[in-house]
């Protein structure tokens, strides 16, 4: 398998008033092309901060202390801000938990998707608009024209998540990072969104880094699992191996919870 992303010894600190917190404490990750990998762990374990550090979009009081993020062999943490901004969104895209709060409330859906395409691909507005509508079709939005001219608050959470996926995929990224994308949604909608992501991945051929506290999702989509606990990767392996023979106590905790209430 061809390697897409490699993270080596990533460390992120948070500077608080009276102390320093090691939120990410020496994380190593690897992701092949077209692979789906799950990063699992409880809240506060450092999953999200790891994901944000990959393209340096961290909160103000966070600092990357050490580590390398190699995208196709090139360390992107060394890049200047302007060069890195060409990678964000274009080659590494994100989907977050609360789509409604990540979309701009004062612009229509159409304007927001079009903007991404113009910015990264330098297309004429008319061309970008046609492309944006095609993307909305690809994420299975029924009434494309209505949604195109709607504002985020006029759409449901599940619908906004589809819009967000369309926007993330606008520039055909090589890596899509999904941070708990279905946690705030109903089970029925969650199942639809997961199916959609799997189908799009097959069609467009990107790698998926999926962050979740729910191993049920890992069992459905991932080939490998990383388990994170208190800023460290405490266990990694093929999905089947993790489920059949967990080593770390937190992995066992996650699996117990999954067996109890993660599946029917």
């Amino acid at each position: 398998m061809e390697k897409l992303l490699e993270v080596k010894n990533l460390k992120v600190d948070f500077q608080l008033d009276d102390r320093v917190i090691h939120a990410v404490d020496g994380v190593d990750l690897r992701l092949d092309k077209n692979e789906t990998v799950v990063l699992a762990g409880e809240s506060g374990s450092g999953k999200t901060i790891t994901a944000l550090a990959l393209t340096r979009i961290l909160p103000r009081n966070a600092r990357i202390v050490s580590g390398e993020v190699l995208l196709e062999g090139k360390n992107i943490l060394d890049l200047e801000e302007r060069q890195l901004s060409l990678i964000r969104g274009a080659r590494i895209a994100y989907i977050f938990q609360e789509p409604t709060s990540y979309l701009n409330p004062v612009y229509t859906i159409g304007e927001q998707i079009t903007e991404v395409i113009i910015l990264h691909q330098d297309k004429l507005r008319k061309v970008a608009q046609v492309q944006a509508k095609k993307l909305l079709e690809a994420v299975q939005i029924g009434e494309v024209n209505r949604v195109f001219s709607s504002y985020p608050h006029q759409l449901s959470g599940g619908m906004n998540q589809r819009v967000f996926i369309a926007m993330s995929l606008a520039c055909k990224p090589g890596l899509l990072i999904c941070d708990e994308p279905t946690t705030s949604l109903d089970v029925t909608i969650e199942a639809q969104i997961l199916k959609l992501l799997i189908r799009l991945k097959k069609e467009m051929g990107f790698s998926l880094l999926f962050i979740t506290h729910n191993l049920a999702i890992a069992n459905k989509i991932a080939s490998r699992i990383y388990v994170m606990y208190q800023g460290k990767i405490v266990e990694e392996g093929l999905t089947a191996k993790i489920f059949n023979d967990p080593q770390h106590f937190h992995t066992k905790e996650l699996i117990t919870a999954y067996q109890k209430i993660g599946k029917l």
Partner: peptide
């Protein structure tokens, strides 16, 4: 809440 916490609260 997290799935692990959910299981404990149940």
């Amino acid at each position: 809440l997290d799935l692990t916490i959910q299981a404990k609260l149940l």
